[in-house]
Nucleic acid binder design. Structure first.
Length: 112
DNA sequence: CGAGTGACCGCAA
DNA sequence: ATTGCGGCCACTC
């Protein structure tokens, strides 16, 4: 029953982000697609700003693996948090999504 | 209820 | 390879 999508969209995004394992990252488009709206990638970013601040939005990056701009503290603060998570960030403020991109279902290394 | 906006993505020159 | 522009849909005021 996929009748619930409107308001549930935000809830799904929050739930999905909350399930991102430590040391992994997801893209806004990835989350948007998994929530049912692959074109609502921007909405995910909006929820990230107006959603629950307790969620690990730090593990959410854009398609190019670049850090978010509106993160509290800027990309620099975002980079610091990612480094604390064990994720390496280069001077370009980009992470190796090819290596760190995580998708629900695989749950590889649930060392949480 | 209406309009504006955005922590994006994809494509075109 | 880079740079610029539009579209898309939910969220906030």
């Amino acid at each position: 029953m996929e009748l619930e999508v409107d308001a549930n969209f935000r809830r799904r995004v929050e739930a999905l982000v909350a399930q991102i394992p430590k040391g992994r990252v997801m893209t806004y488009g990835q989350i948007a697609a998994l929530t049912g709206n692959a074109r609502a990638a921007r909405i995910v970013g909006g929820i990230a700003h107006f959603g629950d601040p307790d969620l690990p939005w730090q593990r959410v990056v854009n398609r190019h693996g670049g850090l978010a701009a509106g993160y509290p503290g800027g990309r620099e603060g975002h980079k610091q948090v990612l480094e604390a998570e064990g994720i390496h960030v280069n001077e370009e403020y980009q992470v190796s999504i090819t290596e760190l991109l995580w998708t629900p279902g695989h749950e590889q290394g649930r060392l949480l």
